[in-house]
Design a protein around this nucleic acid. Structure first.
Length: 882
RNA sequence: GCCGAAGUGGCGGAACCGGCAGACGCGGCGGACUCAAAAUCCGUUGAGGUUACACUCGUGUGGGUUCGACUCCCACCUUCGGCACCA
């Protein structure tokens, strides 16, 4: 009874391709929907079953919208610049472009066999010269506006990758890709002035229909409102300016701290402290991010010997330098208020500095604080401000400082400018060149000097700047591998020599604006035409992994806002609604074995009799009797089930299933190709949607797909039966409710319960002597977005012309979706004791009578005093007795 | 440490504007079909209890609000994700 999925799926995939069923076109008077997936990086290992999850959700939404008469843009492309292709090139010598093209070929084939409703005529590839041209064009526009600039700055240099990294690409002092250590090192870099957009990037999140990602971005941008205050330094003209969010605690500032890398640190240091301070500054500059974040919990610092004057209290306060103050945030110096800041408190304790309470929870004075009091309160020891609550005092102090001209309101951000150059080959060349001072021909080895202070933009007409051919792609040189392509790098113009920029753009560049290129992918005159923009933008639904919550989504919003200011786009935000699909986990099975190895090994099985111990390497567990054990892992084929418990095949060793992110090294990857070959693309699609809520993390269970395939076979069987014209009321109600629920669930991306609803209908229809035609048709139409191949097949079998993809979405009769009678629970003192069927409009008297007529209810009420009756029509009847 | 999300049968999950907890699927058990197996179909399946019913317990833990709490409030525990000296 199983249908032939191979034949059906191939036939309809060919049909869609031949008929261009999913070509996106705008028609007068139709609503539009732009439904976008985060396009993949085509890696060498192909897709695993986790990849299509988000694509399936959008595909179902897109297919339903199309059936509802929307013009739908649902495109796909490739984010094809990236490290893996380049690393492969270094190992094998194969050109990254070649590897990338091969990988794309595999990805395209895999996606097509899943049956996505993409408009493949709009496919884009970020490495195409026709695409790179516009990425470079946007860069030049930023350069013209001063948003792209060079600076010699300490950057995050990753020797393992031979390149610099953006702050966002570093996790715990290591590279996000590869996990290599990162060190601080000064280098000439291109940066993008994302900080100029910090406020808009933070504030304009507000109206978007996004999940928690909104808050993550806000936190990353880290807007904080406060004040800049000047502290006069003894014996110097210029004051030391600090940033604080707590101007109300100014009277409690008992010392100051200046960052080791602050330009004034050495200048203000007194001769007697010079040696100590220089040593501290040196040590701090050599520390990598890792050391600073991981090891440096204990506060360190050195007195500079200098003193400042607290502008409000008039008190003479010492100036320290300490690395808990960051040179790059605020002004690089702080006023320290140990009584009301945990870090300052810790430092003050360590260096025996005075701790003066100036904010009291209740207005009374406290001595010998045990810890910093960081909450709001009432001002004390604050001169004329005493007694003011924190919020009020902030305003008053600010006003006072502004009148005196020694302070002003100020907003600061954690966000830093985006280090935008990479010392790698496989990226977009930065379209800039520099004058060269040389006596001969640098391509022939003549000595030369490049004047990096005079960057020149490549003329728009000369875009794109293409990558040169290279024999050796290895990184390592801070100038990047492109510096080795001397014939490409150096050129003459008006008999002067010039050198191209040899850094390339980071992987994120291409994905910052790709959603705009889909609108008009072949346009050679503009990145997209105004007509194409107006037809489709903004993106109505964007689905992708939450790992891109800060990186890609922040960068893309930034570029979009720049393009908005340029007049290229007309909306301040590109993505109205964002959803993150959860990862699909692979399952492996854990057990324990003796360290000695296979021969005579002691197999301890599951966790029950095993305890963790401290030890080197893999030996982190032992039997309770003391024998040391190693953690071992088995995957699905090595497992057999006995009475619902997994065992190691052929052995008496119990194993414990553990779900983890799918990865090659764990051997828990499930390949969609094999699932499709065995069960069909429709079964894969429906199973992935049925697994659970889209946004949740879910373990893949191969057995689950059997149930889904059985369901599809049942639907196939139903529609194959002789159909009737009559439909009984119960069936009609269920059919119409299912149509309603499936439609609503798709709109809300509750795809799992939509599938469940269709299963319920199918089970019901299967029990009928004859299946009504209307039921079969509506079920087919509901199922079509989920299982489109089977949907087409059944639609045709029902006597309709293809394609079901453009058939109208089924309607439902609201009257059939509400019950006139309903079964409700009858409670006595809040416990359910019976149930009665009542009309929705039944009065309390009727309900009471019906409820008491239930023998079991009567039993609990009998002999007691009925004190109250709670009746919510259609919901509950509750008798309160005493 | 801070921010965010989540804890429900053997498993994935459903219900959550407070109103019959466990839909749907997997797995298990029993049966039909078969020489047999697979596939398919039917029944059953939270725990305790009972011949059967009744009944008792049950949505991470402890409290609270309510006629009534998986759902709301407070405290805590655990898991996952993010940030991490940002003044």
């Amino acid at each position: 009874m199983a249908y032939d999925h191979r034949a059906i799926e191939q036939r309809w995939q060919h049909f869609w391709e031949a008929n261009q069923t999913f070509k996106a076109e705008r028609r007068i008077g139709r609503p539009k929907a732009y439904i976008l997936d985060m396009f993949p990086y085509p890696s060498g290992s192909g897709l695993h079953v986790g990849h299509p999850l988000g694509y399936l959700a959008t595909d179902i939404v897109a297919r339903k919208k199309r059936m509802q008469g929307f013009d739908v843009l649902h495109p796909m492309g490739w984010d094809a610049f990236g490290l893996p292709a380049e690393q492969h090139a270094i190992r094998t010598g194969a050109h990254p472009a070649k590897t990338t093209a091969e990988n794309i070929h595999v990805y395209r084939r895999q996606l097509k066999q899943i049956g996505f409703a993409y408009d493949w005529s709009r496919e884009i590839n970020t490495t195409d010269p026709g695409y790179v041209r516009w990425t470079q064009w946007i860069f030049l526009k930023m350069y013209e506006r001063g948003l792209a600039f060079q600076a010699e700055i300490p950057v995050n240099w990753c020797p393992g990758l031979g390149t610099v990294l953006a702050n966002e690409e570093i996790i715990d002092g290591r590279s996000e890709v590869g996990g290599f250590p990162v060190v601080r090192q000064p280098l000439r870099q291109w940066q993008l002035r994302i900080t100029a957009y910090a406020d808009r990037l933070s504030e304009e999140l507000e109206p978007l229909d996004w999940p928690e990602t909104k808050q993550k971005q806000r936190d990353w941008i880290g807007k904080s409102e406060g004040a800049e205050v000047e502290f006069p330094v003894e014996g110097r003209e210029e004051a030391l300016t600090v940033f604080t969010t707590r101007p109300d605690t100014l009277y409690g500032a008992t010392y100051m701290v200046i960052a080791p890398d602050h330009p004034l640190t050495l200048a203000i240091t007194t001769p007697s402290q010079r040696a100590q301070v220089s040593a501290y500054v040196d040590a701090a500059s050599r520390k990598s991010d890792m050391e600073r974040t991981a090891l440096n919990r204990e506060k360190t610092g050195v007195a500079t010997g200098a003193f400042a004057k607290n502008p409000l209290s008039g008190r003479r306060i010492p100036i320290f330098t300490a690395d808990y103050v960051l040179g790059a945030y605020g002004t690089g110096a702080i006023m320290a208020v140990p009584a009301h800041d945990e870090r300052d408190f810790e430092f003050a304790r360590r260096f025996e500095l005075p701790i003066v309470e100036v904010v009291s929870p209740d207005g009374s004075l406290h001595e010998n604080l045990e810890r910093a009091y960081t909450a709001d309160g009432i001002a004390v020891r604050s001169g004329a401000f005493d007694g003011q609550p924190t919020a009020e005092m902030k305003q008053n102090v600010l006003a006072h400082l502004e009148r005196q001209g020694i302070g002003r309101r100020r907003i600061n951000y954690k966000l830093r400018d985006w280090v935008f150059s990479r010392q790698r080959y496989w990226g977009e060349p930065i379209p800039i060149y520099f004058p060269v001072d040389t006596a001969g021909d640098p391509r022939q080895g003549a000595a030369y000097t490049i004047d990096y202070t005079q960057p020149i933009a490549v003329a728009e007409a000369e875009l794109p700047v293409r990558l040169p051919e290279l024999d050796d792609y290895r990184p390592g040189d801070p100038q990047g591998p492109l510096a080795r392509a001397t014939n490409w790098r150096f050129f003459q113009k008006d008999s002067k020599w010039f050198a191209r920029e040899t850094n390339t753009m980071p992987q994120w560049a291409g994905s910052c604006w790709y959603y705009l290129r889909y609108l008009d992918p072949k346009n050679e005159r503009e990145l997209c035409s105004a007509g194409a923009y107006d037809a489709w933008m903004p993106v109505d639904l964007y689905v992708g992994g939450s790992e891109h919550g800060v990186l890609h989504l922040l960068y893309a919003r930034f570029w979009h806002k720049v393009l908005f200011d340029l007049g290229v786009v007309k909306h301040p935000e590109p993505f109205l609604k964002l959803v993150h699909q959860g990862p699909i986990l692979g399952t492996i099975y854990r057990y324990f074995g003796a360290v000695d190895g296979e021969s005579g090994a002691l197999y301890a099985g599951d966790d029950a009799n095993v305890i963790p111990i401290d030890g080197p390497g893999d030996v982190r567990f032992a039997l309770k009797t003391g024998e040391k054990l190693e953690e071992r892992w088995a995957n699905e084929p090595e497992i057999e089930w006995r009475d619902g418990t997994p065992f190691l095949r052929g052995r008496d060793v119990r194993v414990v299933p553990v779900s983890e992110k799918m990865s090659k090294s764990r051997g828990n990857v499930v390949n969609p190709d094999s699932v499709i070959a065995e069960h069909g693309a429709d079964a894969l699609r429906v199973y992935e949607m049925f697994m659970g809520p889209l946004e949740q993390m879910k373990p893949w269970q191969t057995s689950g797909i059997f149930g889904v395939r059985r369901f599809l076979d049942r639907v196939d069987g139903l529609v194959g039966r002789e159909l009737g014209t009559e439909m009984d009321l119960e069936t009609a109600k269920l059919v119409h409710r299912t149509v309603k629920k499936v439609g609503e669930d798709i709109d809300a991306l509750r795809l799992n319960t939509a599938v469940s609803a269709m299963m319920i209908l199918t089970n019901h229809l299967n029990g009928l002597p004859q299946v009504p035609r209307e039921a079969a048709e509506k079920l087919t139409l509901c199922l079509a977005p989920f299982a489109p191949h089977l949907g087409e097949e059944l639609w045709q079998r029902l006597g309709h012309e293809p394609s079901v993809a453009v058939a109208p979405w089924p309607s439902f009769d609201p009257a059939l979706c509400v019950d006139d009678t309903v079964e409700i629970g009858v409670q006595v003192n809040g416990k359910v004791r019976g149930r009665v069927t009542l009309g929705l409009t039944a009065s309390e008297e009727e309900a009471k009578g019906a409820g008491l007529a239930d023998s079991n209810v009567a039993k609990f009420v009998e002999g007691k005093q009925l004190t109250k009756v709670i009746y919510v029509p259609g919901k509950i009847l509750n008798f309160i007795v005493r």
